[in-house]
């Protein structure tokens, strides 16, 4: 089994205008930096991007926005990116804001063959408009459907040629569930290792969900809010 490709450019081969992408990360933590750069270079347009956040103006998905490559964002919070907020308020960019837990579960459901599920999140708010409501134990829930993507762009810490993945710290976040839901899941890893180096008990995402994997390089791993405490 050998899913290894040379680099991000090979990883996103076949990605076309108008496709739907899932992009891992929470803020700038755990974002697939190499794939995003390759996507900017490729210049694919009219993309629908499913990602929890929109990066910042000059890093992460913000780079795609600067080049007007994104037609629609499906996210839970875009507050760190002023350009996104501006484009959204002006109507230039279509944005579906959905609750973070529903976003995670919709991706998981997409990968897990669950077409739809009920959740209490968003009942009684704008998010519930047009959605079926059902009561369970006297409490109202709304029906949410699974999300799928043509490509899932994933960042992991370690991986092997089978596509088995291990994540590090809070860089994990949406990467596992998006890896499940992508039709073509492309993973960039900080450490591409021999299969023998990964203890099966420690694998977070089994390789069955992964189609392409490559050794990433030159990670900036930018910190959005560097907060420290004083030694006292």
């Amino acid at each position: 089994m050998n899913k290894v490709v040379k680099n991000a450019q090979e990883g996103i081969e076949g990605l076309k205008n108008g496709m739907t992408l899932m992009v891992g990360g929470f803020g700038l933590c755990g974002i697939p930096e190499n794939c995003i750069s390759a996507l900017v270079k490729l210049g694919a347009k009219n993309l629908t991007c499913i990602s929890n956040n929109a990066g910042v103006d000059d890093f992460g998905l913000g780079l795609l926005l600067q080049k007007n490559q994104i037609k629609k964002m499906i996210s839970s919070y875009v507050g760190e990116n002023e350009e996104f907020e501006r484009q959204m308020l002006s109507g230039k960019l279509e944005v579906d804001l959905i609750p973070q837990g529903s976003l995670a579960e919709r991706c998981r459901a997409g990968g897990a063959g669950i077409p739809a599920f009920f959740t209490p999140a968003g009942y009684g708010t704008e998010v519930a408009i047009g959605k079926e409501v059902r009561f369970f134990d006297g409490k109202p829930h709304i029906l949410e459907s699974a999300l799928h993507a043509d490509y899932a762009l994933i960042k992991a810490w370690k991986g092997d040629r089978y596509g088995n993945l291990v994540f590090k710290g809070t860089a994990r976040n949406f990467n596992p569930v998006m890896a499940m839901a992508g039709n073509i899941t492309v993973v960039e890893v900080e450490h591409l290792v021999e299969p023998e180096e990964l203890d099966p008990n420690t694998i977070h995402i089994p390789g069955v969900f992964v189609q392409r994997i490559f050794q990433g390089s030159k990670y900036e791993k930018r910190i959005e809010q560097r907060t420290v405490r004083s030694k006292s």
């Binding site: 803020g27 973070q100 976003l103 995670a104 579960e105 976040n173 596992p176 809010q225």
Partner: peptide, 25 residues
């Protein structure tokens, strides 16, 4: 500071003994 260890507000944090890490779902 560890770029791979942040909170919901995107601030760098630490993890205490007994803590754990998991995915968004």
């Amino acid at each position: 500071e560890d770029a791979d260890l942040i909170n919901a507000g995107k601030q760098t944090v630490t993890i205490l003994p007994g803590g754990s890490i998991f995915d968004s779902s």
